[in-house]
Computed example of a mutant assay.
Amino acid sequence: MTITALATPLATRTRRPSYELPATHGTSALARRAVAPAPQQPATPSPVRAVPEGSEARGFVLYVGLGEGAATADRIELARLVGELRALTSKLAPSAQTHAAVALAPAGSGGRDVDVVRRALGDPAVQQPAPEVDLGIVIDLTRKRVAIGDDVSPLTYREFELLQHIVLREGSTVGRCDIIDALWQADAEDRPNERTIDVHIRRLRSKLGAYAEIIRTVRGEGYRFDRHADVTVLASGPSPDRF
């Protein structure tokens, strides 16, 4: 059997111009369409514990260093700045409780404002200046010297003997005649009178500085030493005084 193929003419199609961009080797047409990447959301910061385990944070302190002169230059009053900061805090955290304190310092004291504020408000992270410690006065009868703080008072031998004589009779009034008889020989050429003893006491007190009043004047009777908390008397062995 013979099969005869019938040729049917196809309709002629007109090719429309294409407005698509020609494909590029290795890149699809879709890939060529530039698409702006979506903005990335900021990563949520991991919580940082500023307190040790077993305790809880109850708030924070914000130290603001701003002197009156700097505030004037910035054209703002401290009261207004405080008010606006408190208002912002209430807006961001309605449950927050606020308290404002102003740090005061002597005029012209210098230093950075924020450091002055931290010290004035007792910030434990700031090194507080060591308070001046009054070392007092030490009357060392063994070595025959008087130390006022870190300094040794330049007492003469006679002045120290006079001080020692009164100190050893702590709580008792020592008369001028008693002092003369104890510290000078009866026939000594330089044996003083009672008025001269007053001169010796004045010179002694001048060398005791801030502790001059440890030798008190008992009017009409003589002189007296009373122990104070800032006065230390050192002695070892038998009394060095002469009787």
Rank of each mutant, 00 (worst) to 15 (best):
T4C: 04
L6Y: 02
T8R: 05
T8D: 07
L10R: 13
A11M: 03
R13S: 05
S18P: 06
H25M: 10
S28K: 02
S28H: 02
L30V: 15
A36R: 14
P37Q: 03
P37Y: 00
P42I: 10
A43R: 14
T44Y: 00
S46M: 14
R49M: 04
V51P: 00
E53L: 15
E53C: 13
G54P: 12
S55K: 10
A57I: 14
R58M: 11
R58W: 07
V64K: 12
L66W: 09
L66Q: 10
G67N: 13
I76Y: 01
G83E: 00
R86T: 15
R86Q: 15
R86I: 11
R86P: 01
A87Q: 13
T89I: 15
P94F: 04
S95M: 08
A96D: 00
T98E: 05
A100T: 12
A100E: 03
A101H: 00
V102N: 07
A103R: 00
A107P: 08
A107I: 14
G108R: 10
D113Q: 07
V114P: 07
V114D: 11
D115E: 15
R118G: 10
A120E: 08
A120P: 01
L121K: 04
G122D: 10
G122Y: 01
P124R: 13
P124L: 12
P131R: 14
V133A: 14
D134M: 02
G136H: 02
I137N: 06
V138Y: 06
I139C: 04
D140P: 06
L141F: 08
L141I: 09
G149V: 09
D150E: 07
E159C: 06
E161H: 01
H165T: 08
R169S: 10
R169D: 05
E170L: 02
G171E: 07
G175I: 03
G175C: 03
D181P: 00
A182T: 14
D187H: 04
D190T: 15
E194P: 08
I197G: 06
H200E: 09
R203Q: 14
R205C: 05
R205H: 03
G209E: 06
A210S: 09
A212Y: 05
I214E: 00
I214L: 06
R216K: 11
R216H: 02
V218F: 02
G220V: 09
G220Y: 08
E221W: 09
G222H: 06
G222P: 08
R224I: 05
R224C: 10
R224Q: 14
F225C: 05
D226H: 03
A229W: 01
T232Q: 10
T232Y: 00
V233Y: 05
L234H: 14
A235M: 09
S239D: 12
P240L: 04
